Amino acid sequence: MVTVAVDCMGGDHGPRVTVPAALEFQSRAQDVAVVLVGAREAVEAELAARGRSPGPNLRVHHASEVVGMDEPPAQALRYKKASSMRLAIDLVKRGEAHACVSAGNTGALMAISRFVLKTLPGIDRPAIATVLPNMKGGFTYVLDLGANVDCTAEQLMQFGVMGAMLVAAVEHKERPSVGLLNIGVEDIKGNDTVKRAAELLRASGLNFFGNVEGDDIYKGTTDVVVCDGFVGNVLLKASEGVAHMIVGFLRQEFTRNPWRMLVAWLATPVRNALRARMDPGRYNGASLVGLQGIVVKSHGSADVPAFAHALENALEEVRNAVPKRIAERMAALPEAALP
């Protein structure tokens, strides 16, 4: 049986969201055990409010501390060893859970996960990977989204391997295509690091497409897009801003006068469908890939359905042995792709 450890105290809402989300997730995956890690009183109160109590497949693991959303990662790593985040990751390390899901402080989650679980052989640094919707009706996996601001060419190549193995496992694609985010598709474009990364990716044996630009992410040109964490985080935040702006513009235009309000009412099914396609909750759950264990980061403001989606992502990674696939692919890299 797969066991998932949930950091119940992380995020903007804590147990008010994480506990009901875990129950919703478990109702759909009844062969999965859940460990709710957090302040016992608060967690059990949420369970009682929903007519549930701990049992063999729903266990409460008490944590006396909480990592604050604005707490420095080094401080959380050094001084919060009894935090819900640390204890949930410790469960993965000890083999008592197969994955950890947290909506807590991203920097702290990455620092603690890397310290406790360690990276896979051949991987210098873990990366944050998530999906963005594309015009083909599917998703584009993008990494890194903020864990590593400065990256070497070798690390970008490693991100390509991690992203490709994640897609191969979760999407069941034999040879996912990998693109390298650049300021142009031509080989002469980009800085020395990106140019060298392209050479390593070509030599890696991956299905390397070549350079891609920002709009290729939403066109669905490749299955995976690789970039450093600085670029990736700016890309993600800019994309979220554009999505909110489009929704805002539509609302303004549809409410300018009674005639447009009528048109808006007639277009309600279309607006609802568009809102559903752009709902960030559908894509919630970023993977911390490259670790010797599975850790999934939920958005801090996630609601119940969104956090449950992050739990489902973790389950998919467990069932498809993502870390094992990455380790095996790194071990099989051609000599030309090695530093």
Rank of each mutant, 00 (worst) to 15 (best):
V2Q: 11
V6R: 00
V6Y: 00
V6L: 11
D7E: 03
G10K: 05
G11S: 05
D12A: 05
G14M: 12
V17Q: 08
V19S: 06
P20G: 12
L23A: 01
E24V: 13
S27H: 14
D31K: 15
D31G: 15
V34Q: 06
V35S: 13
E41S: 13
E44Y: 13
R52D: 04
G55Y: 07
R59T: 15
H61Y: 11
V66F: 12
V66L: 15
K80Q: 14
K81Q: 14
A82H: 10
I89M: 11
D90I: 07
L91F: 12
K93C: 09
C100P: 10
S102K: 00
G104E: 12
N105M: 10
M110I: 15
F115P: 00
K118I: 02
T119Y: 01
P121D: 03
M135A: 08
F139Y: 08
F139T: 13
Y141N: 02
L143P: 08
L145I: 12
G146W: 09
V149L: 14
D150R: 10
D150P: 11
A153Q: 11
E154M: 02
F159G: 03
V161F: 09
L166W: 13
V167D: 01
A169P: 09
P176V: 00
S177Y: 02
V178Q: 08
I183A: 04
V185R: 08
V185S: 03
D187N: 13
K195G: 01
R196H: 01
A198Y: 01
A198P: 01
E199A: 02
E199H: 04
R202I: 06
F208E: 01
F209H: 15
G210N: 02
V212H: 08
E213Y: 05
D215A: 07
I217N: 12
G220I: 00
T221P: 01
V226K: 12
D228L: 04
D228V: 03
F230M: 13
V231N: 09
L235N: 12
S239G: 12
E240N: 07
G241Y: 05
I246H: 04
I246G: 05
L250K: 04
L250S: 08
E253S: 14
N257S: 10
R260H: 13
L262R: 15
A264G: 15
V270P: 00
R271Q: 06
R271A: 00
A276W: 04
R277F: 04
M278R: 03
M278T: 12
P280I: 07
G281T: 05
Y283K: 06
A286W: 05
L291V: 02
L291C: 01
Q292V: 04
H299I: 01
H299C: 03
A302W: 09
R319E: 05
N320H: 15
A321Q: 15
V322F: 02
K324F: 11
I326Y: 04
I326L: 01
A327D: 13
R329E: 10
R329T: 08
M330A: 00
A332F: 07
A336C: 07
A337I: 11
